[in-house]
Amino acid sequence: MELGQWAFVAAFFVVAPLLPIAPIVLNRLLAPSRPSETKLDVYECGVETVGDTWGQIKVQYYLYAIIFLVFDVEMVFLFPWAVALGSLDFSAYLAGLVFVFLLVEGLVYAWRKGALEWN
């Protein structure tokens, strides 16, 4: 029964966070805690920190994220296709082929336009 299996996964989701919490709490209880002004400061190899932490990032990161998102959604569609392919005839393969080719077009465009370059 499918739901019974997921009960096991649910139990995993409950237990998994407890495993790292235990040593951290133990550490908190056992270790000494002597905070000082310098100790709590931002760690930058001893140099005073300048400016705002949450500054602007490069557009490049966003572009990678977009391309990744598109491919991620594509892969989600390909999973059922891959599972069913063995039991279907060749036309099913062609359907997948067209699907992937349309996306390869997108990848080629991104490549040509230099969206994959890291500057």
């Binding site: 270790a31 000494p32 709590l40 931002v42």
Partner: peptide
């Protein structure tokens, strides 16, 4: 050893 290391919670 790690259990005995201080757990620092930095300011900010």
């Amino acid at each position: 050893k790690l259990l005995g290391k201080e757990l620092i919670l930095p300011r900010n």
